[in-house]
Amino acid sequence: MIIKVLGSGCANCQNLERNTREALAQTGLEATIEKVTDYPAIMRYNIMRTPALVIDEKVVVKGRVPTVAAIAELLTAATS
């Protein structure tokens, strides 16, 4: 599983990355986390609100920071 955190280094982008890492640790899933901070690269996902979370090239979260539990749900949904 490849997870991308989209956002240009804002505080919420760091919160999203931290929550995602925690959710990964909780669920015990294996994934690589990439940070995408370059605007043209971010816009390739056609989002207009940062931060955003992309799991295997699919945008699952944009413009907010979900709780660890909510991200864990998204992660398990993506693997099944």
């Binding site: 240009s8 804002c10 919420n12 605007y39 971010i42 816009m43 056609n46 989002i47 207009m48 609100r49 940062t50 413009g63």
Partner: peptide
């Protein structure tokens, strides 16, 4: 619903 912290992606998204 919009936060000015997303001003840049919104600007690019609109113009593009």
């Amino acid at each position: 619903p919009f936060c000015s912290c997303s001003a840049v992606p919104a600007f690019i998204g609109f113009v593009a």
